[in-house]
């Protein structure tokens, strides 16, 4: 197979040695079917064992390997080197996140937001599993299924300037997951989740940049989830205004 050589420029930041990040350049021979992650693995195995990044499944589902590639947040396991032929490929840690080392970012903020939206089924009354499944129609499933496909890769946060300007913003993935539970016919936790997603730093912070949905590698469309949450919240508020005594 034909081999080309890619020039890879990677952000290095080693907190024990460096006060500032810098770029380091590597030359990587590659075949047509190699992805950026393969190049990083080549560098780590053959050139520089200290290059640090996360990865695992190399098939676009574990969500570990996000990075900014030529400025765009992408999964390194799903970005082919040949798409950058003839150019230097710049790989940086995902924007907006604090960097722990090289390409490894701190995602504790998201982990906290995830807990905040209560990403579990809330029911008034549980039925024991022995009695079988909660029935759900294909249409009911479709109302939330795309939003349940979020792999928590954080690309949407890296793409969101609103999050970049205000890290308190609940953000795309967490809202998509909140909406996933709100729309699940088995869930009865709307009243618990609505105040959370509609608070000051919740969905109303979103001013529709739309880049979250552009970069999502799983077609989740978090922007859609945020706007639908706004619509649900607005209609709910209107309803309680018009019919103060119940009427849900």
């Amino acid at each position: 197979m034909s081999q080309d050589v890619a020039t890879i420029r990677v952000t290095r930041y080693r907190p024990e040695k460096d006060s500032k990040p810098f770029f380091q350049e590597y030359k990587v021979p590659y075949r047509h079917d190699m992805v950026v992650l393969d190049a990083l693995n080549y560098i780590k195995a053959e050139i520089d064992g200290s290059l640090t990044y996360r990865w695992s499944c190399r098939m676009g589902v574990c969500g570990s390997c996000g990075a900014n590639i030529d400025g765009e947040p992408k999964l390194t396991c799903a970005s082919f080197l040949h798409d950058f032929k003839g150019r230097t490929i710049t790989i940086e840690p995902m924007t907006h996140f604090p960097v722990i080392k090289d390409l490894v970012v701190d995602m504790e903020d998201f982990m906290e937001k995830l807990v905040k939206i209560k990403p579990w089924i809330i029911r008034d009354k549980e039925t024991p599993p022995e009695q079988g499944e909660y029935k759900q129609s294909a249409q009911e499933l479709e109302r939330y299924s795309q939003f349940s496909s979020c792999i928590n890769c954080m690309l949407c946060y890296a793409a969101c300037p609103i999050y970049g300007l205000n890290e308190k913003f609940l953000g795309p993935a967490a809202t998509a997951l909140a909406y996933r539970y709100i729309e699940d016919s088995r869930d009865q936790g709307k009243d618990v989740r609505f105040p959370i997603v509609h608070e000051m730093e919740g969905v109303w912070e979103c001013t529709l940049v739309g880049e979250c949905s552009v970069v999502c590698p799983k077609g989740v469309d978090p922007m859609l989830a945020i706007q639908k949450t706004k619509i649900l919240g607005a209609t709910n508020a209107l309803k309680s205004l018009l019919m103060p005594r119940g009427g849900h």
Binding site: Y13, P15, E16, P21, P93, T95, H96, P98, V99, I100, D106, P161, G164, L165
Partner: peptide
């Protein structure tokens, strides 16, 4: 050890 915190550039857009 300190994490690297990056400011959003005013030219981000």
């Amino acid at each position: 050890y300190p994490e690297l915190r990056r400011r959003l550039s005013y030219r981000w857009w």
